[in-house]
Amino acid sequence: MTDNGRPRRRRPVVLLLVLPLIAVLVPEFYNFGHPAIGGMPFFYWWQLAWIAGVAVCTGIVYRATRSPR
């Protein structure tokens, strides 16, 4: 689809979507007990923290790519 006669391009901001994939799909990065937070091993809080991370990434991409109303 075109806007103002220009072909639509994927913006680099879309690359943000790759970040959470790398962060949680490679257990080599986070399969450790330390440092723990409040007694919770690194393995668990790292992945839980990325829930917020993914929401931020998809949120930014949504705002950058949403269709005009």
Partner: peptide
């Protein structure tokens, strides 16, 4: 044990993967 926690990365990667 830990393998059961896969549900968390599963529901993290689902959203960026399927968004478009």
């Amino acid at each position: 044990g830990a393998i059961g926690f896969y549900a968390v990365p599963y529901t993290i990667v689902a959203w960026p993967l399927v968004m478009f």
